[in-house]
Design a protein around this nucleic acid. Structure first.
Lengths: 371, 371
DNA sequence: CTGAAAGCGCTTACAG
DNA sequence: CTGAAAGCGCTTACAG
């Protein structure tokens, strides 16, 4: 009933608008005439540029309100030759993981759709396993012309220094993939990690019931440095504690990320009796665990991990990984650039936090997934 | 390794471009000069308008290719006062189901983003439970100015007649939600139903193993008329037959869609011994089944249905529905309009089929779902 | 603090 | 079959 009403309202509003359709869409010219000034002065007020008498300014503002004037962005972009420079500071795609191909593709897609509006994008790729490369690249950003920044704060402390620099220079920045909450962020676009962990646990619970041991696997050079992994793990555990369930949950932190080391560690667990029946890997490296199971010819009930990357999809299709939890990495890149565009070019307000959907991917729906 | 290379290539291409950056982006003026004609003639060739000497036409075409000329759409839309009229022919949002609110919202969102480019949308809502209302509304479409159509072919035969009419009038049309394959469709935007059925079965299999009886429930006034439901059911059954699995699958077709009738039919099944442990409802009416289970205080292992509509989400959150399979109905409306825009306004080619993702929604990820 | 004028890259009558 | 000119709604030097 509620929806019906809203719909009706919408249609009525549209009809009214259509009737007035031919009433010439008011522009700077009309405002100028009404205010007895030139269009140049109107333009100054519209863009908050200095050098307008306060009284004139007030008068023009009043008229703008009255007419409910909306600038014609088409005309604005055509007339203006200002070029906006966006810097993108994200990890390079590496042999180890192609996760960052997603956001990169999204950035490129956004670039294509708005390049006509005078946006240029400069890339600064750093090495995800090398803290210094982040610092190095972040220094380069301010050497060039830069109006806005998109960054993945993979190294939290270094990223904090960098974002502070942005704030000092009045350069708006967008965070993707993980967040460093700060009121002056333009916005964060990425997953709600805790909730992703909750979902992982729900899937385990739905698929296994409450029997059998569950193993959480964290794989990262610096596990403790990434609150990324910790938030997911906390979410995962909370699902059960919220419901007063007490499954047998073990966990292992693997700080060596090469296959041999990981296989060795897993061997210690899976070559014994009473092995876990479900394994939850807290990031995209689930494919390494899958490879281990494949090579060691071990079959477990359930293997869940994260991220829509090629190596993971391969094991998903083979039936070794059962479920991937994904966060639309391509979309993060796309939306990140569009947020800068909205703020800087369109001068519109941008919502501060965009949580990505938490997608459940299996071998049967992976084909149609748009990352 | 492959990705690395692609990336490097991309960056190099960009750098080259940046070097040439200042080489004035060639426009109609330059083409005109090179061809020794006026820009009006260039414009005629660009838009395939009649009245240009064949030799001139050829010459201009050659130059366009040579310069790799891309028209500036911004300028084009600003200069042109042509308004495009899109007709949208979809079911009204009804008290019975708010499914169509999704596509409608998508259409409205698309309208907002392209209305500056001179697109006007006219709505023709029909009653999903009244075949004649479709016919009635579809007749109205051609009374008005119409450059393109978006339709949901809910009544197949009537829709076939209508799309034929579109073809006769050279009016391109886009189908959403379900398809009537035809080579002259501009495109189809919607789910791959068979694959959705497969996924439903996979979820049942993952969550239950192979024990217990499964019940398929089709709810529609004219079940046999909707190959929609049949395709899903076939997909569902195929999952098991592909794998040579033979679970105990029953099915029931309910042609009365009110609660009382459905409850009565379900009572016959669930008030006996040996009741099904999993129920798979092939459309959005799963909330009616959920309501029955709630009121009859029956608990089953697994209830799966379709579509992200309010009543379904309510039961999802209550834990009565376990999983909803969703097809981004909002996105279908949005993409449908954008496809018309791409074809008619931008004069770009449009892919013929866009299958929507098949999304798995549970109580833990429904909050972040973008329909 | 303000304005007149040129121009962004196209499209559109109109005239021939 | 073709062209000269005005205009779309803004922005941008430049001059005062």
């Amino acid at each position: 009933m509620r929806l019906r009403t809203l719909l009706d309202q919408y249609i009525q509003t549209r009809m009214k608008k259509n009737n007035h359709q031919k009433s010439i869409h008011s522009g700077v010219k009309e405002i100028a005439k009404m205010a007895n000034v030139s269009i140049a002065t109107v333009d100054r007020v519209l863009h908050n540029r200095a050098g307008v008498a306060p009284s004139t300014k007030r008068r023009i503002h009043r008229i703008i309100k009255e007419l409910d004037y909306k600038p014609n962005i088409i005309a604005s972009r055509l007339a203006s030759r200002k070029v906006f420079h966006f810097a993108v500071l994200i990890p390079a795609v590496s042999d180890e993981t192609d996760f960052w191909q997603g956001p990169l593709n999204g950035v490129i897609r956004a670039e294509k759709t708005i390049k006509e509006y005078g946006v240029k994008i400069d890339f600064y790729f750093f090495d995800i396993s090398n803290r210094n490369s982040f610092v190095e690249q972040s220094h380069k950003v301010f050497n060039n012309n830069v109006d806005g920044v998109l960054l993945a704060p993979s190294f939290i402390n270094e990223a904090k220094i960098f974002t502070e620099e942005c704030r000092k220079n009045k350069v708006p920045y967008v965070l993707i993939d993980s967040n460093i909450p700060h009121e002056e962020n333009l916005c964060y676009i990425g997953p709600h990690l805790f909730r992703s962990g909750l979902l992982g646990a729900q899937l385990v619970n739905l698929m296994l019931g409450e029997e059998g041991e569950i193993l959480i696997v964290n794989i990262a050079h610096e596990v403790d440095d990434h609150n990324y992994l910790l938030e997911i793990e906390q979410g995962f555990r909370s699902y059960f504690s919220y419901r007063d369930l007490h499954p047998d949950i073990h966990k292992i932190d693997l700080r060596q990320t090469d296959y041999a080391s990981i296989a060795k560690s897993l061997d210690k667990i899976f070559r014994t009796k009473d092995t876990p029946i479900a394994v939850f890997v807290t990031n995209s490296r689930v494919n390494i665990v899958a490879r281990y199971f494949e090579e060691a010819k071990i079959e477990i009930e359930l293997l869940i991990g994260f991220d829509f990357i090629n190596k993971n999809i391969e094991y998903l299709k083979k039936g070794i990984i059962d479920v991937l939890i994904c966060h639309k990495s391509e979309e993060q890149g796309y939306k990140g650039i569009m947020a800068l565009y909205q703020h800087l070019v369109l001068e519109e307000t941008v919502e501060n936090i965009h949580f990505m959907p938490i997608d459940i991917i299996t071998s049967e729906n992976c084909e149609f997934y748009s990352n």
